[in-house]
């Protein structure tokens, strides 16, 4: 407890870094997956290519991806950008499938109705298809958020790991307290992010509320 009190400012700093390292990729991944998912939903060839590439990317172990990136994008190995790019890759790999599935499951009669009402394709996509895709996309986003937050810690092995630095510090000092604090903090952040996304998803889809109560 006293360790926690003494190191509180440092821990808050690590929490902020942790959230930044996990959150920026989540946002970037979401912004990139929507057009990719749209593309995958329009052309069978793009769908096959995107889904198999993201499948392969998703299998690459995090530490491997982290240390390969400097060679691919020309950053220094200790640059936080490596962690962010790696997590963005995982986020996209996960979300492209969610977005594709979500857009694919929008009922055809709804799309036709929007067409009949004179919606142009872009407006139809933004105001009809995308909102209806929200529940499935948010489900994917929640998985990505939790996995990003737990993966950030691996970055500690290349010197940029948010709360993960407590693991390497504690291990080197043979001191359990920081490690436990780091684990608890990381799990709490993940649960918090999950809850926030759940609530945000519900707020964005008020029309689902009645269905939820009925079903």
């Amino acid at each position: 407890m006293s360790w926690l009190a003494r190191n509180w400012p440092h821990i808050l700093d690590l929490v902020r870094q942790h959230l930044e390292l996990a959150g920026v990729p989540l946002l970037a991944g979401l912004l990139l997956s929507v057009p990719l998912g749209w593309l995958a939903n329009r052309s069978v060839a793009a769908r096959g290519l995107l889904l198999s590439v993201s499948g392969v990317l998703y299998t690459i172990p995090s530490l491997a991806l982290l240390v390969v990136l400097p060679a691919v994008i020309g950053t220094k190995i200790l640059n936080p950008v490596n962690v962010m790019v790696a997590l963005t890759v995982y986020t996209i790999a996960l979300l492209v499938r969610s977005v594709t599935d979500a857009l694919g499951s929008v009922p055809t009669h709804v799309v036709s109705a929007a067409d009949a009402m004179g919606f142009r394709p872009l407006r139809r996509f933004l105001t009809v298809e995308l909102p209806l895709a929200v529940p499935v996309v948010v489900a994917g986003l929640r998985v990505a958020a939790v996995s990003n937050i737990s993966l950030v810690s691996v970055g500690a092995l290349i010197g940029v790991g948010g709360l993960g630095e407590l693991f390497t510090d504690g291990f080197q000092l043979q001191f359990l307290t920081p490690i436990v604090v780091g684990i608890v903090g990381s799990v709490l952040l993940a649960l918090l992010a999950d809850a926030v996304l759940l609530v945000a998803g519900r707020a964005l889809t008020p029309w689902e509320r009645g269905a939820r109560r009925a079903g």
């Binding site: 737990s150 810690s153 993960g164 407590l166 693991f167 390497t168 359990l176 990381s186 799990v187 649960l191």
Partner: peptide, 19 residues
């Protein structure tokens, strides 16, 4: 199963090995 997915792997490894 969901909760366990939030567990940071490096934290788990270091804590288990220290203990």
């Amino acid at each position: 199963a969901n909760g366990l997915r939030a567990l940071p792997t490096l934290g788990l490894l270091t804590v288990v090995v220290l203990l």
